[in-house]
Design a protein around this nucleic acid. Structure first.
Lengths: 151, 151
DNA sequence: TTGCTCCTCACGTCACGTGAGGTGGC
DNA sequence: TTGCTCCTCACGTCACGTGAGGTGGC
């Protein structure tokens, strides 16, 4: 493919280092269909990646670690997004405004669901933090009274 | 053991349901030394648990899910806490105030470390949330302009 | 006595880790 | 040509899931 904006391609080890995972993880995600398997890669040839793959992998890792989603759930999410992308590509040259609107609303729904998951996590973490702060207050009080009787 | 405050004991299934895990998880954690294996349980006898075990298991699950700690890391944390508890029990009947102070300061250190992990997670989640909010702002703008040209 | 929950193996699974042995690009 | 990174199996591991077959308490 000869495109105008030829970005430098990364090898799997470089992608791994930039995102902070191992090459094994990247190959496994490709096996599951989560990451771009370039169709033209012949058997035994090196994998190469672009900046879009860096963002995508970072996003996947974030969903996995911060929201605790399983790879199966990530595959489902990805399939939903790919369905959107397919629609978009299909009508890319001549989409009506109604079709554009539909695509925007689907993207909005996905982002809202993700945001809801993030907000829920934040709430649980805030409760956890509050309990720890309370514990520290109690410990500080005990420390003060002990310091008094020691001195 | 004949104690004055005999609380009703839970069976493993009840503990599992109250904390939201499976019985397999509870048995596995016991195997790793994370959960109280009553010394007096004879081979094949039922396991029983008290309210303290409910709190402890909830705490472990929270560390695992919210902070992403491995069970090995939880075991290390537990060992540190048990060392504290051992010290406390050893001197329980006659601890000097210096010893009490030492115990309080160790507990404070542990709580502070946990709180730091929680705060770090919260920061990462907040950044994630901010990116999603920004995305939603862009989507809303596109939606508005599309709505205009459709109507 | 009848269910129900419990028990202990023990093999299966998910998400990779970790070599083994070999090929390809700067 | 020499390293270095890459490749593909393929078995190992962690944190459980999931029966198989059997015993125990309301």
């Amino acid at each position: 493919v000869t495109s105008t904006g030829m970005e430098p391609r990364l090898r799997i080890g470089e992608l791994a280092e930039r995102v902070g995972v191992t090459t094994r993880t990247i190959r496994y995600y490709e096996e599951l269909g989560l990451l771009g398997a370039q169709a033209e890669r012949s058997k035994g040839a090196h994998r190469t990646y672009g900046e879009a793959d860096v963002s995508r992998l970072r996003e996947l890792i974030r969903m996995r670690d911060l929201l605790g989603l399983s790879l199966e759930e990530l595959v489902e999410l990805a399939e939903a997004e790919e369905a959107r992308a397919a629609l978009r590509d299909q009508w890319y040259d001549d989409p009506t405004d109604e079709e554009r609107l539909e695509i925007v609303e689907q993207a909005t729904a996905i982002a809202k669901r993700q945001l809801a998951l993030v907000r829920a996590r934040q709430q649980t973490l805030e409760q956890f933090a509050a309990e720890l702060e309370e514990k520290l207050v109690l410990l500080r009080a005990r420390r003060r009274s002990l310091k008094r009787s020691v001195s």
